[in-house]
């Protein structure tokens, strides 16, 4: 204690000076907006490193939450994107009074097989979350598949990597319709069937979902044509296509609910009777 007092007495001038210096800085700070701004900037400069450090740690722990909010935002954007894709089929769709029959949900992939000829995906949303059979499934880069069966909390999806699944596609430039299915080899190699030979094809033409099935809305880009050849006998092209996105690398997907699917199905049944 005595030593502290001694030190205080010994350095009293320096201490007094520093205290008064602080006080005068306060005057300077308080009396002029200009000095206030400048001093605050210097203060920021000093505290910046500290803030950066604590921010980076905090951000790391917030990542999960950020991911969730981004997913939710993406879901909304996906819905808007689908709407805007569908302008050719549903004109004036962006006006509020016009009904758009598709609705978007998001889900996480918990199992994704891609080594078999008939592959399935399991997601962590089920009947409780409003998933229904035959809902379409999209990823951020294209088509994933169609919901096959639904339990309370999980659903299985027939993957696009399943040779039984045929998806109605439209070629962007030539407007020709066809059906896309997996070749069963590489995960991005697909073939398109049923394109009639009077269509003008070009390599690199984009494939969009056709909008002719009740599963997928029109205009989702899936992939592009990588090769084609005329088939003299059948009158149809043999087309090879390549997906934009590798369906084996999925973390989360979007489920598309077609609200009018039941209506359309009844109509089709009536026709087929």
């Amino acid at each position: 204690m005595q030593r502290i007092l001694n030190a205080l007495v010994q350095y009293r001038n320096l201490i007094l000076y520093l205290v008064l210096l602080g006080v005068s800085f306060l005057f300077l700070n308080g009396s002029s907006q200009f000095h206030q701004n400048h001093l605050e900037r210097y203060g920021l400069l000093f505290s910046q490193g500290l803030h950066d450090f604590s921010n980076s740690i905090g951000n790391y722990f917030r990542l999960k939450k950020i991911n969730e909010t981004l997913l939710a935002e993406n879901m909304k954007l996906k819905e808007r994107e689908l709407k805007s894709n569908n302008i050719p089929l549903y004109p004036s769709i962006l006006k509020t009074n016009k009904r758009f029959p598709f609705k978007v949900k998001e889900a996480n992939v918990i199992r994704n097989s891609y080594l078999n000829q008939r592959n399935y995906i399991i997601i962590d949303k089920g009947a409780v979350d409003g998933v229904k059979k035959e809902m379409a499934v999209l990823s951020n880069q294209g088509v994933v598949g169609i919901v096959n069966s639904v339990s309370d909390h999980y659903s299985s999806i027939v993957s696009i990597l399943n040779q039984d699944l045929k998806i109605n596609v439209r070629l962007k430039k030539s407007n020709a319709l066809g059906s896309l299915s997996w070749k069963g080899t590489k995960t991005t190699d697909f073939k398109i069937e049923d394109v009639v030979q009077n269509a003008q094809l070009s390599i690199g033409d984009t494939l969009l979902t056709g909008g002719m099935s009740s599963y997928f809305p029109y205009g989702i880009p899936i992939g592009k044509i990588s090769a084609f050849e005329r088939n003299a006998t059948s009158g149809y092209y043999t087309i090879s296509a390549e997906l934009f996105d590798d369906p084996s690398l999925l973390y989360y997907v979007y489920l598309i609910e077609h609200k009018d699917q039941d209506e359309i199905n009844t109509l089709t049944k009536d026709i087929n009777k």
């Binding site: 001038n13 320096l14 000076y17 210096l21 800085f25 306060l26 005057f27 300077l28 700070n29």
Partner: peptide, 14 residues
Amino acid sequence: SGGAHTLSALTVAY
């Protein structure tokens, strides 16, 4: 005039 005189006079005194 803000605190400029205070600060400089104080420093010179020190």
